[in-house]
Simulated assay, not measured.
Amino acid sequence: MNDRLQQLALFVRVVESGSFSKAAREFGLSQPSVSRAMAALERRLTVKLLVRTTRQVSATDAGEALLARARDALLAIDDAESAARGADRLSGVLRVALPPGYGAWRIVPLLPAFFARHPLLKIDLMMSDRYENLIAEGADLALRIGDLPDSSFVARKLESARRLFIAAPSYLARRGAPASLADLARHDLIGGPADPGDETWVGRRNGRIERQAVSPRIYSRSAAGVVACAVAGLGVASASSWMCADALASGEVVEILTDYALDLVPAYVVFPAGRRPSQRARAFSDYLEQALAAIGEEKGSSADLEKPASRSSRSLPPHPLRNA
């Protein structure tokens, strides 16, 4: 990358991340090197582009004008190079933000086939149960679990899974198995990312909706933590079939209250607002849609998974949502 292109690329990431040090880490440079590059860019354009405070770096009006055009120019160059190489020779780094549980259970097993198609591509799996600002963190796309409130972020639904009640055999032997949602009032409960601030669990039985006020004895901010607590015999949990499939298969937990139907848990691929997705991001999204659809077809009419929906516009929430 020549100096002018690198300056523009650094400028974009400095503004998006609000930090010289973050941009430096992403490009493998020192912070002083990034500062010098930004100073050189301002001298070349004879205009002030950045405003620094003790907390962050932001763009001036001139910087904002440059930002949109620089993004488009860099993406156009990237797409042009990808087109020249061919669709099967994508290169560079694809940064994907995703929840650890869903990533480990559903996405990582699909990566070998994707790498076989694109041997020059690298992937940075930004696994976190926290929902970060995708642009600030430099993500090309994100995988999100749960219903997405309206916003300017565009998303495509990939698939849905059943949510079910689970508990360890040791816990059930000690406390007995609940026969109804109301029985949960007498049990230890495990809350998870789907339940922050929600003190009511809802299920449908015999065509009727039932609600039960709950007060979890233990709460985990991660899906893996919910399953681990259930396996340890700490109580009854509500979990998606994605996150508890292995524990169910091994017998570490069993499904209970099986006559209740709970809301499906959807999974979406989400693109950052304000910029066109790169060819790498589009290729990965298309691949996931196809691969997950194939899994759904193999399962046939299984109640555990719903086949991926056709492309739909939804949005990324400004705050944490549920993780499966």
Score class of each variant (00 low, 15 high):
Ala9Met: 02
Met38Ile: 10
Pro216Trp: 03
Leu74Arg: 06
Pro100Tyr: 03
Arg25Ile: 13
Gln6Asn: 10
Ile135Ala: 13
Pro178Ala: 07
Ala294Cys: 07
Gly86Trp: 08
Ser30His: 10
Ser151Lys: 06
Pro272Trp: 04
Leu111Tyr: 12
Asn2Phe: 06
Lys48Leu: 04
Arg13Ala: 03
Asn206His: 12
Ala245Phe: 05
Leu184Lys: 00
Asp129Ala: 01
Gly101Phe: 08
Ala283Thr: 08
Leu45Cys: 01
Leu288Asn: 10
Pro308His: 09
Ser285His: 15
Ala39Cys: 01
Phe165Tyr: 07
His319Leu: 10
Ala309Ile: 09
Asp183Trp: 02
Cys229Leu: 13
Gly233Met: 07
Ser302Arg: 09
Pro317Cys: 02
Ile209Met: 05
Ile256Val: 14
Ile135Glu: 14
Ala168Met: 05
Ser160Lys: 03
Pro196Gly: 08
Tyr131Gln: 15
Ala65Asp: 03
Leu10Asn: 05
Pro308Lys: 11
Asp150Met: 14
Arg280Leu: 11
Leu184Thr: 02
Val34Arg: 00
Ser240Cys: 11
Ala324His: 08
Arg280Lys: 13
His319Met: 09
Gln56Trp: 10
Gly191Ile: 03
Gln6Pro: 15
Val226Tyr: 02
Ile145Pro: 14
Ser301Leu: 12
Ile135Lys: 15
Leu305Val: 14
Ala230Val: 09
Ser19Ile: 07
Ala324Tyr: 11
Leu120Asp: 15
Leu181Cys: 00
Gly192Asp: 08
Val57Met: 08
Ala291Asn: 13
Leu98Pro: 05
Ala309Val: 11
Gln212Asp: 01
Leu125Asn: 07
Thr53Cys: 07
Arg130Ser: 14
Ser313Ile: 10
Val226Ser: 05
Leu134Phe: 13
Leu288Cys: 09
Arg163Trp: 04
Leu110Cys: 11
Ile218Cys: 14
Ala87Asp: 10
Leu321Arg: 08
Phe20Tyr: 12
Ala194Arg: 06
Lys157Pro: 14
Asp124Ile: 05
Asn2Cys: 10
Val214Tyr: 00
Gln212Phe: 02
Leu148Ala: 08
Leu41Phe: 01
Asp140Asn: 11
Ala83Phe: 10
Ser35Ile: 05
Arg52His: 09
Ala179Ser: 12
Leu110Ile: 04
Ala83Val: 14
Gly233Phe: 07
Ser302Cys: 12
Glu298Leu: 12
